[in-house]
Nucleic acid binder design. Structure first.
Lengths: 217, 217, 217, 217
DNA sequence: TATGAATGAGCCTTCATTCAT
DNA sequence: TATGAATGAAGGCTCATTCAT
């Protein structure tokens, strides 16, 4: 590579470049946030790139200086958000010695984060679920990271004897994630206004039943 | 009026008309099946109506003799499939006196039906999850019927004392549906070829743990 | 022509065939009247053939047993109506010995006929003015007959010394027809409801001024 | 706000925006002229937007950067042309103290403008007469302005005692406009090639007869 | 003769993407 | 680097017309 553009870039997990230059980084993030809002408001397919540009206060063409195409914008939004979620959960659970406790933290934090941010929830639960193969591919890796986070907590718990060892850890992950997913999705799509936060305890209760070894005896 | 000129129609659950005339009915179903395949293959947004028409061996315009627009085709495919699923499950569970047994039948049948039909699974789990408000509205009612089927089994079980009464039945429904959903979705999207059917017992095991009152004592 | 369809047809001025068989003639006229209504209601270009068929209580395809295509339907409606108008005026003026009187009869009858039949007026003044070359060609001949009727009255009047001989008779025809045309068109398009019939005397007054030799002296 | 980013627009009589930026204005006018030609050549309904684009040397999509839809293109062409006509006539008649003289100027100028521009004449007399309610609505206002111009000349003339006060001024307007309209329309549609300009004196002669008070005595 | 289901050509319009400035 | 005007491919949908019954 005999020639290199002057400004440095950091490669994220998907090989896409995130600008290091703080001014560029700011515009990059502005687009990300604008896209989150716009996708959430119109839906991915019904959201012209121009809407994102307008919300980000940049020209349409500017989007293409930071992202290869519209799909990549969607993927990048997801990556930013899911990575943030993962990082936060990792921090929160670092000092927790109890593996069920970690799961509880994860569930509470995840549900809380989405339950308090309808725009984000709508994006992650609804708009993201577009089916273009490219998008699915772009989403796969960071999502897997999140999956593994959960699955590892389960495996830990099984090693500790807290979680039933007969359970298939992968299925347990799907149970946990699938339940949260369903609860949040229903909430986002529901016309009735209610508070998902209030459902967290119910979710915890049933997940605990599903996983935890009965130590009553 | 001894003779009716206009052909009869049956109203489905959403008030849309399905032709009774067997020849029309056949073409209607041909389009439904073609659309299922086409949507599953290309994804809703990347599937031109012409692809459906070609698969159904009809002209593009013919689609519009049976459906108001592309959205309605998607919705109708869903309705046909989910109604079939509901009907089948209702039949299978009719003679079952055990409410946990009913849930087990439902889970096994649902996972089996999708696990043996990747096209249908792909359609229901992936392609359907489009976010156009109209589509969501069209899907809502029959989906709710399916939800209620599950939820009622749970409530029955709680009345019988088989299922833990402290559980929020609505959350239990979301746990059951969400878990299956996640398991099937991951399978459909997975590049690795494996058999979800083999995972059914694991799902049943963990769902039983989550719901059933421990009668060990 | 070695072979001839059994039912007889009369060729009209444009070479189109009008059925002689009374039952066919009835259906032909039913379509004509339905088309008049339908074109008037929706406008030629926004009126699908199916709307005409429905109004005429026949199947779409039946239209094409009587008319070569949609354009021909429009042309035929015009021919029927304008020929009727011409015939009526010819009858009414036959016994009139005064050529200005004939013009007055023509103007009063024409304005009365349209002023009392908004559907017909809308058709003739608005919907008919479509610009497809074919339509214009089809309309030209019977329209010319009407033009000549007027123009001949003017020429007669000039011969009789009643109408100013310095006037270009063709321009006089255009003045008469153009004025009526404008008055009726404005009325049809006007949102305000008023009665054109009441304007007839004003029109007669100004036309008389334009044409009649002042015999005051 | 010392600097305006968004380019300025001038509102025309119908509230539609015409670009002020000279480069945009040029392209706007290019489309207008191309549309005039294309509509005149093919007729509104038989003229695809792509034909206009080709004539204007722009891409199809560009049309939609300047006009909301095809209808608006038609309406805008009319507005440009009729406003030009009105402005010109207003200028020409400004210094004329004689109200019949103003009418004569108007008639001569209007007939001359169309008689020397068959494309414009064909557009205004034939293609424009489409019946879509939207189009008629869009055309109504500037057309009314033109109507009033004529009518006011008549009323002036009546006040001055030059024009017969027994004449209904509105009918007089319809006589003037209707006659010109008919003369021009016949000319445009005529296959024979003749010069309408040569008919102007005949029109003036008959209109004068219709309107002017005989001052012979 | 009558039907009306089926056809498929054709068009308006959108919008992701490019590129001259 | 940023702009936003311009592009043009693509697709949903309509409807005049046909033809098997």
């Amino acid at each position: 590579m005999p020639y290199m553009k002057t400004d440095q870039k950091t490669e994220n997990s998907l090989g896409k470049s995130i600008p290091d230059d703080p001014r560029k980084r700011a515009k990059y993030m502005a687009i990300i946030e604008a896209a989150l809002e716009a996708f959430s408001e119109y839906g991915y397919h019904d959201c012209p790139v121009s809407k994102i540009a307008r919300k980000a206060n940049v020209a349409d063409g500017t989007i293409y200086l930071y992202f290869a195409n519209k799909e990549e914008v969607l993927i990048s939004v997801f990556q930013e958000k899911i990575n943030r979620l993962i990082t936060d959960i990792e921090k929160l659970t670092k000092d927790c010695t109890d593996s069920w406790g970690k799961i509880e933290i994860l569930v509470r934090y995840h549900m809380g984060a989405l339950g308090n941010d309808r725009v984000l929830a709508n994006f992650l639960q609804i708009q993201l679920r577009q089916s273009s193969a490219n998008i699915r591919r772009g989403i796969a890796l960071p999502l897997k990271k999140f999956y593994l986070l959960i699955e590892n907590f389960v495996i830990e718990g099984q090693k500790e004897g807290v979680i039933d060892s007969f359970i298939n850890a992968n299925i347990a992950r799907k149970l946990i994630f699938g339940t949260i997913d369903e609860v949040i999705s229903c909430w986002v799509l529901s016309r009735r206004q209610y508070d998902v936060i209030e459902r967290i305890d119910d979710v915890i209760y049933i997940l605990r039943r599903a996983l935890i070894v009965d130590t009553a005896a």
